[in-house]
Design a protein around this nucleic acid. Structure first.
Lengths: 333, 333
DNA sequence: CTGAAAGCGCTTACAG
DNA sequence: CTGAAAGCGCTTACAG
């Protein structure tokens, strides 16, 4: 694993390492390095298979061309897709991505942040768990370029990109109400997460508009730990509550609930969901979905982050609320 | 973003930076640093919020505590789950993971490898696309610790961890044959990938054993680019070929094919698949699946990689073939 | 047009 | 028991 260094090239060509460095960084014009010298340097570097050592460069410049991404769980298809779009755009801009999963734990979240700082990431993209205001403010104070994605935190001076959660959930619930439903269950995950909270508020607001009181008895907030069992429990209870429909607050909640629902007479209910996983295409139900614009989420996030990195004096904080589209999966069997 | 360095701590305590470094690296015992000195150093470091600068440490030690992971596409649930298990085990051993998606392109694959080398990853986990033997051999020659996952390449002196693809596919096809099927379609993705090739061979071998000739007319190998359209085309053609069943070579092939199949009388066919995505739980078909032991895949891979990193003289090459389980999803509607 | 030199923050033999 | 010093590979202001 012995690598060719700038020094090796310099020695071979009997020039200084400064010359080699300047050429290889494309600064040969501005430092008026001779054209033939520049050419010789480039050729020799290619021949010898020179690859810059980022550790050395980072130590000198303070930049790593690496971004840190923390999501709740990279194996959740929503976050996996988001990661993919972020990767694409990062790559197009010369950055690579390190990732970590918080499992909704503040402790793990903080630990990942510390590791990213040690590794000198140029910026971070965070989908924060609950109670992470403090950790985030510490990053703000350290002037670490930072964008929250999927989950903004109100009141924090930090840019965020997310969908209009309240409105999406309001629209979805409205459709069920217009369709005659009055006993609408709400299956959520971690209702104290800011984005899920908004989704609950949208649900409640739609009910209110139709003069239907919110019945907290048919509102479920399920923990991340032991998720599958928790959902099974919640579904079992919910099915005794005389409901006529359900709103799923996320893809994972929806899929897992439908799996559990197969043991019941699930066809008699009507469904709505934030997210539209492929599973719904196959489920033998009519379900109205909000499709999240994941590509836009990723790209807007990276766009803001890269601007903050490239212009550290830029103090603009942006709160982006992306609008969403309704899609409907019809029972086709 | 001004950070506390070892020097800052040293100056504050009026000791040398060597002392601070030794204490913070837990070498105070072996260098017989005074107990009270060590304690004071640790306290001050904590107070001042010291975080080591990995760029400096890496430059000095050559280690980054970072691993590189290249998959075909991180948004594919199989790879997303694999990434998650790798992340967990890496984290438990003090490593972080950078990832990249090759999109089955040799060019992108090589580019990602080069970037990982520039960033001095301590080792790489690769699911290589076609025609990447050369790139991999270059890594071997550079003595970069390396394990292939999901896809071993025969004849290369590189450790690999994968399922027993031929056997899994053989078993699966056998079940259809025993069930009376004789016109069994095979839907694959990139049949020249080593793992997919093995799956094809298992399919062919099972047919042969039952005296059924392989009909290449009902064997489909679909390109990664334009995947969804390709599948739709392939399904359209396949449905004119008088088949009685299909084997799906991967989760993505299966899900996408079933989506396309909804426009046809898909219920008359019998199904088998490598992988068991949740979508199958909802599809209105009987399907026999091979469940890949993704957790074992990830953990065995990392286990071998970490051993290679920690003991660079270890020249043992391991080819791991994990055995798989059959699971059956029954039509329950 | 090009070179000599400093310094980024760390670790580690070596000296005492 | 602790300090002074070298050096990892790079970039960049400065000198000529």
């Amino acid at each position: 694993m012995t690598r060719v260094s700038i020094k090796d090239i310099a020695e071979k060509l009997k020039v200084s390492s400064a010359t080699v460095s300047l050429v290889l960084n494309g600064k040969d014009q501005s430092s008026r390095i001779g054209k033939d010298m520049a050419k010789k340097v480039r050729e020799t570097a290619a021949e010898m298979g020179y690859r810059p050592n980022m550790a050395a460069r980072s130590l000198r410049t303070g930049k790593t061309k690496t971004l840190g991404l923390i999501v709740a769980d990279i194996s959740n298809p929503f976050f996996a897709k988001l990661a993919r779009y972020i990767e694409n755009m990062a790559d197009a801009n010369g950055y690579q991505v390190m990732f970590g999963s918080s499992d909704e734990s503040t402790v793990k979240f903080k630990k990942l942040i510390d590791l990213f700082i040690e590794k000198n990431v140029d910026g971070m993209i965070l989908a924060p768990p609950q109670n992470s205001e403090e950790a985030i403010m510490e990053l703000v104070n350290r002037r670490v370029p930072l964008v929250l994605v999927d989950r903004g935190i109100e009141g924090l001076p930090v840019s965020s990109v997310q969908i209009d959660n309240a409105r999406a959930s309001f629209d979805l619930t409205n459709i069920l109400l217009d369709d005659g439903c009055r006993r609408i269950g709400f299956m959520a995950y971690n209702i104290d997460l800011p984005n899920i909270r908004k989704r609950y508020e949208g649900y409640a607001k739609a009910l209110e508009k139709h003069g239907v009181p919110v019945d907290e008895d048919i509102v479920y907030s399920v923990d991340f730990e032991g998720f599958e069992d928790n959902i099974e429990q919640a579904v079992a209870t919910l099915m005794n509550k005389d409901i006529d429909s359900v709103v799923f607050a996320t893809n994972r909640v929806g899929v897992q609930s439908l799996i559990a629902l197969q043991s019941y007479d699930y066809r008699k209910l009507k469904y709505a969901s934030i997210d539209n996983p492929d599973e719904y295409l196959f489920a033998d139900i009519d379900i109205t979905c909000i499709e999240q614009p994941i590509k836009d989420l990723g790209e807007r996030t990276l766009d803001i982050l890269l601007r903050n990195i490239e212009d550290p004096k830029n103090k603009v904080v942006e709160y982006v609320l992306l609008q969403t589209n309704l899609t409907v999966f019809l029972r086709n069997k």
